[in-house]
Design a protein around this nucleic acid. Sequence first.
DNA 1: GTCTATAGCTGGATAGAC
DNA 2: GTCTATCCAGCTATAGAC
Lengths: 236, 236
Amino acid sequence: MKKIASKTHHRGSPSAEIRVLDASSKDKIFRSAEALFSTKGFREVSVRDIAARAGVHFALVAYYFGGKQALLDEIFHSHVAPLVEDGMKRLKAITKGGRKPSVEEILKAWILPCLRQGEPEEGRMIHLRIIASLSHERWEYTKKVSSYMQRSYRAFIKALQSCLPHLSKETLMWRLHFVMGALFFGIRQPASLIALSGARCNPEDLEATFDQILPYAAAGFRAAECAGAKSRKSKK
Amino acid sequence: MKKIASKTHHRGSPSAEIRVLDASSKDKIFRSAEALFSTKGFREVSVRDIAARAGVHFALVAYYFGGKQALLDEIFHSHVAPLVEDGMKRLKAITKGGRKPSVEEILKAWILPCLRQGEPEEGRMIHLRIIASLSHERWEYTKKVSSYMQRSYRAFIKALQSCLPHLSKETLMWRLHFVMGALFFGIRQPASLIALSGARCNPEDLEATFDQILPYAAAGFRAAECAGAKSRKSKK
DNA sequence: GTCTATAGCTGGATAGAC
DNA sequence: GTCTATCCAGCTATAGAC
């Protein structure tokens, strides 16, 4: 409603990058849906809620996007794709010319895109919450996120392997999974830590989250392989 | 339908501990609801689904439990309370007589109740999924979990503090939060790691999860305090 | 204790007026 | 491009028959 320098969210138009003065109804719906989905998830939010928050009629959701599900898909894509791109870009930057980065550097390149470092404050929280909350809700989206991430995920595992060669690939995968869990959980459930810590820690402060998770995760990655790791790779 | 040695799930009856041959309709509904809520969440599951899976008529849900929400509350309570109890018991056991346990021991006491070590296999996954999925869905339940956990949480933080005295309380709180995130995420979204790892790691294998997370988290806890931790305790 | 029937609500989609 | 009116599906809950 106030700031209107918005990216278009259409995958089909690579030409038009930034379109100012685009606070059309369509745009308002899109932003409203982002905000609501990110806090409440998909099922909890009705088309009517979205329209109400955007100040438009709910019929317009179907008119512009084709339906609730289609709207979600568009939002989802617009958020996941840059995540992967940014991660790959950062990884390339630190491995340029065969250079071997430290664990910290690699983790930083993995974590920062999740926290959308560099983006304007207003959209950052929404962004991660979308990913966290949707992948927590709908199985299809977990699958989608995973398949989107495959490429960058493999590259990161490879990088980690070359700087922690004594660890098995499986262990590295587990540990990277733990990092994602810590990030997503913090962002999806800030209330939990806020309540338990008596408001002394706040996961909504993304800088603090980063400062805290990096040394913790880096040290965790450097831990020795656990005893039974190889013997029971996948028991089930 | 097969094994019927079930605990009663009524908080009001502390006397009757185990009641065999209780595979009544009420019990079937309860179990069915546990299974469905744990995999799909609350909103995604209808009373009709629950009844269908239990093989009874959907009207019975209201008859026995008073409604969908009340059923959920009962399930929820029956799962969270033991979690806290078990954690406290384990913590007491390792600190008995003023003994100072290691980080590993403390974390073990925190993690194992979450994974319900010692319980029969069939119910373990359901249990944690209930907590993870509900606290991801409804804000009230995050609040409820938090308030239930306050007591044991504080005790654990205190124990950690006494064995890692160089770390601030805030840092310990962050790190314990990361552990919970890793656990919950793994259990709620096993598909994610399974897909990304090409089925080489499986978070549904709770023993593997434990083996993997313990050395990782313990090493993470031992990491030095991050530089900016004190200065920007809670910026926001 | 169990099921039928139904009331009453919410929400997504759409045809058509403006 | 926007809104009205309406349809229809699916849900919870409940009164009352068996």
